[in-house]
Simulated scan of single mutants.
Amino acid sequence: MTQIRVKGFKIFNDRHGKRRCYHRATGHKINLEKTPLGSAEFFAECARIAAIAETKKAQAPKPGTLGGLLNTYFQTEHFGNLADATKRDYRKCADFLHPIRDTPVSAITTPLVSGIHDKAARKIGWRRANMVRTVLSQVFRHVIPKGLIDRDYAADVIPKPRPKDRPYANRPWTVEERAVVLERAAPHVRAAVALIMNTGLDPSDALKLTRRQIDADTIWGFRGKTGEEVAIPIGPTLQKALDAAPIHDAVTILATSAGRPWTYNGFSTVWHRFKKKLEAEEAVQPGLTLKGLRHTVATTLREAGLEERQIADLLGQKTPSMARHYSRSANLADRNRIKMETLEKENERRSKVVKPFQKPVKP
């Protein structure tokens, strides 16, 4: 029997005596039933797999280049611990840098990074440009200890300012807008909006909350983006909203009309359609976002006289060290209780002057 060999491929008999074949470098298996060993189809498949492997190898970041630094950073624990949304944003920045991935580390300077930053601002906007700068700074910082670069060349690059004529992103909601949204929203949507509105949680974190995270009169959890723990006392308004939420069997506090846990994209789609309908009726102003409710809570508390550090504690804007994890949790709810009481009283005061929604009469 002729023994067939193909460079880069292992051909063998498994423990059942059945012939097997796979590409050594990639582990890609060849189905010998569809492409019999030694046939023209078999050799064609081997050639195809080898060509793909060579192409991927050629595209892989080279050591000692910007692409190599990015690849090293993406394998660090720091990147692995980021929120999924942040990881996607960082990957998009790497895609923007892909055309210059072969730039040698020796050629990376602060003026070069500044030029990249300027070009990014022209092509993808000031916000994304600043994110590119942030990603490069993170990359440099995490590869310095590995001896792959000598300093953070993005540190001295000045972030792009927000254009003066750009609308305020995630602006706070007015009292009237809050009232009309709660009045007009479907019950399963109203419950979600009310939860975000009365806790200041990020929408993605609110949708993920499970029933087990409610202990007595407190919501316990972590902010997904920063890992900061949150302990939010449930005030009368929030309790009323939770009690009025549709009954369902999902493990999460919030659920769709079918009783299943929300996905962020699913809720965003439903919210966008509902918001557009309200905008068409001129019931709300353009620019209303779910994340704007976090700004609403912060703004309301700030106007009521609370300090920024107090508000930051409520919104989970500082990552605590693990050494202080449990001791901080023990009194976090008590520290936040007065803040939630302030928010409750301020919202109640403002709501007394809100008139019921009436569609404006056009002249």
Rank of each mutant, 00 (worst) to 15 (best):
I232C: 03
D313G: 12
P236S: 08
E281K: 05
L136W: 02
D95W: 08
R335G: 04
F79E: 03
T269E: 11
R122L: 12
T319L: 08
A154Y: 02
F357Y: 15
K339Y: 09
R127K: 14
G316P: 03
K29D: 13
K146W: 14
I11W: 05
V354T: 07
R88Y: 05
G27L: 02
T226A: 08
V180F: 02
P163S: 08
E348S: 08
V113K: 06
E176Y: 09
T2R: 13
H142A: 09
S351W: 10
T103D: 05
G68D: 06
V270R: 03
R20T: 08
I247S: 12
Y264E: 12
D118C: 05
F9T: 09
F79I: 04
D118N: 13
D156W: 10
K18W: 15
D313I: 02
G235W: 04
Q285A: 15
I234E: 04
P104D: 06
F9A: 02
A192V: 11
E176L: 03
A185G: 01
P111M: 06
K34C: 10
A154Q: 01
P187Y: 12
E33K: 13
H295Y: 00
H248I: 04
Q75D: 15
N71L: 10
G266V: 06
W220D: 00
R309D: 10
P63N: 14
E176Q: 14
K225V: 08
K18G: 08
K345R: 04
G200L: 02
P286M: 08
L306T: 11
K57M: 11
F79S: 01
Q358N: 12
K34Q: 15
S137T: 12
D102Q: 13
L112T: 11
R166H: 15
K92G: 11
A94E: 14
H98W: 11
R273G: 10
P286Y: 15
T103L: 13
L301D: 00
F96V: 11
G200S: 07
F357T: 13
T134R: 12
M322I: 14
E308D: 10
Q239C: 05
N170H: 15
I108Y: 05
A186D: 12
T134Y: 09
E341M: 03
A192Y: 03
T226Q: 08
F42D: 02
W220R: 12
L82P: 07
E346K: 01
M1L: 12
R171A: 15
I196E: 11
V157S: 02
P172A: 13
H28N: 07
E279K: 00
A191K: 06
L112N: 09
R128P: 01
